[in-house]
Design a protein around this nucleic acid. Structure first.
Lengths: 343, 343
DNA sequence: CTGTTAGCGCTTTCAA
DNA sequence: TTGAAAGCGCTAACAG
């Protein structure tokens, strides 16, 4: 049994209320009294029970960060940004990794409600998250969505310019001469998949390239998903000359397949993707990407959340962050002959 | 104000205890009664308050995972492994990112005690973690150390074979003809730094190469640390022909410097490091590494922790996991001329 | 199988 | 500036 406030009080010869006041930095305590209490706390190694504290005060000082994949460098940076801002404002953050699994997300969400977190930031797995997020709203727990919007949910949102970013990426490929351009997309119940597909289509249309549904593959937004889509891609009768993947991890999967097939990027297949591939790009600056300011996603979202918690915010806020095109080698920028090739 | 157990009880026409029994899966409830209660719960959207639950039952079902850097792929995988095992056993995990900062670690540790977590897994920032971990032990909260040992602390530990791994890595360089081999090491109050240095020394000694203290640089175990050390390295009058870096992130920093200097790996400087560089190695399998089974670190540590929590374990357990040498290009395996070069 | 009572450790509210 | 009483929402322990 850990030390309780009562034992501290007895040792210091005061009431529990006085100890409580010392703990909560109330200045309505005489310096000498405070000293006695602090001594007792130190001697007993007392650590206040935050369950009791939260139960009694209805405040936990805890926020939740819910992301689909901590292993994705994009989310890792988001988390870092959010956590730092939270920390500076006296909040602790519980990090929940849903692994893109709606069941797990729902369980975490309910868990966080049960833990009485004061607010949460979530990159939802998909539009399916709506139901559980409505429950969160119903419980009056403020939340900010990040990276992915959820259809039918009008809460605070921080996202990237997915349509514009995708469009520029594909335009870049077109400018280099590519015309048969595939897209490895994610499930369409994820807003980023929908929007990046839109950008892809807009770029094609602007260049008068007919949209070919066969060239748009749908898969999971992780490395394995990319790997599988890549297999399909290489199996095409007339192989595309370039591919745009919906994010960094799917790009890695595609690259893996291409390498295993003994083919070369960009000679056999040019490739561009959304989101940077951090560390890899330092070791070999190879993949042309549309990089997003991930850390800002986190810091801004957390700021919005704090505003909500404190009741400062009133209407819904929607922040769109611009991505940046980083041209490297994988798009075949230095190549002459990039016509579609058959095999 | 959220719905409480009392309101559910009233609506269902039973006592709070019956509701509690339904919540806790006790089968000592008649099916019909259970149905009434479940209906009431659903209708009211009731979510039990886990603060109250934890306070009353002295069990929170929460574990803490404390790591120095979630952005490091090694720890990301550790976390994933641990979290999955925890989840399967009905535990939720709070992930704490200390950013290699002892102050932050101490704050988190105290926080976790306050939250009454049932146990924790920690990759300590350094030997300085001892003080606060003693506090944890004093509070009878079981913990398992991971990756890094803390001097003077005899708790459960899951670590890699750092001496052996480092030795093999350096032996490999020696086998390729390198004799002037630098090491970019971390602070010596981190056990992995000490052990990997030992392995480095043993390899040199076995090959009758004199130990040159000037060749061993000390820096932070992140990318920036590697970057700084790399600068120093390139400034040497007689540049080493190869370098062994203490981990993956420092390697990335060194590679960055070398590239910026217009030099080439392994021609101008061969490089090997501890820990794999996951994603990068798929895109371009370049760096020769001593890869560790990161996910197993997490799963095993969590298993040990569960044993402790349930009181199954008695004596201290120390698990050592073997790393695996993955030979790629950065060590200059295919090169002929690798003598030390001056510039 | 169900209910009553007491209390987990703290803070709120009110009083001195 | 300090303290006493009450209660936050739940469950342990007992009783029926």
């Amino acid at each position: 049994m850990p030390v309780t406030i009562r034992e501290v009080a007895e040792r210091a010869g005061v009431s529990t209320m006085t100890v409580s006041r010392v703990l909560n930095e109330s200045n309505r305590v005489q310096p000498e009294t405070r000293q006695k209490v602090e001594l007792a706390i130190a001697e007993l190694g007392y650590v206040p029970n935050s369950l009791a504290r939260g139960l009694s005060s209805q405040k936990t000082g805890v926020l939740a960060l819910i992301v689909p994949d901590v292993a994705n460098p994009f989310f890792t940076k988001v988390v870092r940004g959010a956590e730092n801002v939270g920390w500076r404002n006296g909040y602790r953050a519980i990090l929940c990794n849903t692994e893109n699994d709606i069941t797990r997300e729902e369980a975490y969400l309910e868990d966080m409600l049960a833990q009485r977190v004061e607010g949460l930031i979530i990159a939802p797995t998909s539009d399916q998250s709506r139901r559980q997020l409505n429950l969160v709203a119903q419980h009056k727990v403020p939340f900010v969505m990040i990276d992915r919007a959820v259809e039918g949910l009008d809460n605070d949102l921080v996202e990237g310019d997915n349509i514009g970013g995708a469009k520029k990426l594909v335009e870049h490929l077109i400018k280099l001469g590519h015309r048969r351009i595939a897209m490895v997309n994610g499930p369409l119940d994820i807003s980023t998949s929908r929007d990046r597909l839109k950008g892809y289509c807009q770029a094609l249309e602007a260049a008068n390239i007919a949209y070919d549904p066969e060239l748009v593959l749908q898969t999971n937004v992780d490395q394995l998903g990319g790997y599988r889509a890549g297999k399909q891609l290489l199996g095409f009768k007339v192989r595309p000359s370039a591919v745009f993947t919906v994010n960094n991890l799917t790009a890695v999967g595609v690259i893996q397949v291409v390498r295993e097939a003994g083919l070369t990027i960009p000679e056999d297949l040019a490739l561009v993707c959304f989101d940077d591939i951090e560390i890899a790009s330092i070791i070999c600056p190879f993949v042309t990407v549309m990089a997003q300011p991930a850390e800002s996603f986190g810091t801004i979202a957390l700021q919005l959340l704090l505003d909500r918690i404190s009741g400062r915010a009133v209407e819904r806020r929607h922040v769109t962050l611009s991505p940046e095109l980083i041209i490297r080698e994988s798009c075949g920028v230095n190549l002459r002959n990039i016509a579609g090739t058959s095999h």
